[in-house]
Structure formats: structure tokens, C-alpha cells
């Protein structure tokens, strides 16, 4: 059976309560279409991870889908602290999530170890700080300090992470799942490859031949991929290089809405629960803000020179 399917099908089939998910994106290429579908389907008790989380993780926490978060950071960028994240940690609304805290060095290294099938990896950070004094659901397995068997120096080891599923949004993929990305990567490549399986959301489906014209851009090979979803505008209000810019006005709307529980619920009803899919979302966006606002986000064209792989 083919891997190309709707987001509804992909999430129904592959996201289950209690799973451990890597969700790619670094403001760029946030798989928002997938996240909205996860929330519409009321998935629960998820463990989520990524370095530098933002509005998407804040929303999942606010919607009550998350139990545990292997984290390094969460904020709304220029719009300040994550409101739902704060309410969860400070007031237990809708419930208090459990946090296991690392850094933007250690977490990508843990994902890299997972991707490479290594049990753990040494990292040079975190020592001497309170990050080593806090342990949550990973307990004593959060890290170990050993004397290096090579030179006796004190060395921090952190465990490999192997998420059940990764969800990433990229520029293009073929129907088999070969996923091609360009621009800022964050921890997307290691996170996707650490997971046991991958859902690829993409701006456009392309042929296998197109992929083969520039194969160095592929970050996940098809054999890891279980679903491919063509989802134009799928990272909004985040951006996708070559397709559309960050929507700062929408970021501000989310921040203002999520300032209160009621505001957050209204936002979710309008933009997630009351919306069927990404096409309906995009239509609603245009109805609400006008085609001009939508058009303004669209990227111009600035093509590179084609590269040749000939020999």
C-alpha cells in the first residue's frame, strides 16, 4: 500500500496515546498541520522532544496532549515566555507536565546517538550546574559521570534517545518518503533518524527523478518513512525556506490569545478544533486576514545555480 495519505490518516494510523515523539522544526518547518491534527484527534499522554521548542510545543502542552517533555528550551521568541508552558509548570493547568531538562548540545547528541544505534554519548557541557542536580522521569538514567577509560578525565555520558515516531515538515519529498530539506536544520536530521519511523509532511510531492537530481538534500531515506503527506502552508505560522516567511502577526495573535485559558480555548476552537484540515485552515486564514496578508507571506524566487552530479 502506498505511503501517500492525508494528515488525518497518517495521524490516526501512526500516532498513539503514550508514544514518544520527536517533532522537528526550529521556527522553520514546524509541522503545524500535523500538530493540529494530533490535537483534533485528542491524542494523550505523549512524551515530546526537540531542541528549542516554541509555539507548537506550547500549544500541545496547553491542549493537554503532553505528559512528558524532554526539553532544552521553550519560548515564543520575540513574544516572550510560553504562556501554556508556564501555566502547566506554575499552576498545573491543564495539568503539570514532567520535564527532563538538557541543553542544545546534549539533546542533539542524544538524538545522534539514537540515530547511530549507540547506547550513550559523552558531552562536554552541563557540568557544575544545576542541570545535573535535577532529575525527573529519567531518574538516574538522565546522565552518568565516569572517569574516561582513555585518559581518566571526568566525563558526562547522556543516554541515546529513540523516539517511537518522528514528525517533520520539509520542502519536498517523493511518494516513497525520501525527504529533502534546505535551510536551517536545527536537530531535524538527527531527530528524524533517531526515531523508529517517520511521518514526512511536505510542501510539495515530487517525483523520484526530481529527488535524484539533487540527492544531497535528502535528510531521511524512504525506508524509515511510514507516511508522506503533501501539506502546502503546513508549517504556518512558522516558515519554510523558499515557500513562505514567518508570520509575526499570527505569532502575536497566538501570544495574546494564550495569555489566558479562555483566550487559548477560543484560539484553539477557531484555528484547530473547528477546522477540518490544512486546506480549510488556509482558507480560514485568507477569509480572516485577506488574500493580501496570505500573499505577503509567500516567498519570492531566488534560485541557486543548478548543481551537476555528472561524472
Amino acid at each position: 500500500m502506498g505511503k501517500v495519505m492525508s494528515m488525518k490518516e497518517a495521524i490516526e494510523r501512526h500516532v498513539h496515546n503514550g508514544q514518544f515523539l520527536f517533532i522537528g522544526g526550529y521556527i522553520c518547518r514546524t509541522p503545524f498541520a500535523a500538530i493540529h491534527e494530533i490535537l483534533r484527534q485528542k491524542k494523550k499522554d505523549l512524551t515530546i522532544t526537540r531542541s528549542n521548542a516554541a509555539d507548537d510545543f506550547d500549544m500541545m502542552i496547553g491542549a493537554g496532549a503532553v505528559s512528558r517533555f524532554i526539553s532544552t528550551f521553550l519560548s515564543l521568541g520575540v513574544y516572550g515566555l510560553g504562556r501554556c508552558y508556564r501555566r502547566s509548570i506554575e499552576k498545573g493547568i491543564p495539568h503539570r507536565i514532567e520535564l527532563e531538562e538538557y541543553t542544545n548540545l546534549s539533546l542533539p547528541m542524544m538524538l545522534m546517538a539514537g540515530a547511530m544505534g549507540m547506547p550513550f554519548v559523552p558531552v562536554k557541557d552541563m557540568v557544575g550546574t544545576d542541570l545535573l542536580n535535577i532529575k525527573s522521569f529519567m531518574g538516574e538514567g538522565k546522565y552518568k559521570i565516569i572517569e574516561s577509560p582513555f585518559d581518566g578525565t571526568r566525563t558526562v555520558l547522556v543516554p541515546a534517545l529513540k523516539p517511537d515516531l518522528a514528525i517533520i515538515h520539509v520542502q519536498q519529498a517523493d511518494k516513497h518518503g525520501n525527504a529533502q530539506m534546505w535551510g536551517i536544520g536545527g536537530d531535524c536530521k538527527v531527530g528524524a533518524n533517531a526515531a523508529k519511523k517517520v511521518i514526512v509532511s511536505c510542501e510539495r510531492l515530487v517525483s523520484r527523478e526530481t529527488v535524484g537530481k539533487d540527492p544531497s538534500r535528502t535528510i531521511v531515506p524512504d525506508f524509515k518513512v511510514v507516511a508522506v503527506v503533501e501539506e502546502p502552508f503546513g508549517a504556518h505560522p512558522g516558515y519554510t525556506p523558499g515557500f513562505y516567511d514567518v508570520d509575526f502577526a499570527f505569532g502575536s495573535l497566538y501570544q495574546k490569545s494564550s495569555d489566558t485559558v479562555q483566550g487559548f480555548e477560543n484560539f484553539m476552537n477557531e484555528w484547530v478544533y473547528g477546522i477540518a484540515d490544512r486546506t480549510a485552515y488556509t482558507q480560514h486564514y485568507i477569509e480572516r486576514f485577506g488574500y493580501g496578508a496570505f500573499k505577503k507571506l509567500q516567498a519570492g524566487f531566488d534560485y541557486g545555480y543548478p548543481v551537476s552530479y555528472a561524472y
Partner: peptide, 15 residues
């Protein structure tokens, strides 16, 4: 007040 967390700060400060 819950703040964002380390992000890249700890490794930068360490290294």
C-alpha cells in the same frame, strides 16, 4: 516564574 531553560546557553557558557 518558569523561564525558557538552557537552550544553547549552557554549552556556550561551558565551552
Amino acid at each position: 516564574s518558569r523561564l525558557p531553560g538552557s537552550g544553547g546557553a549552557n554549552p556556550i557558557g561551558s565551552l
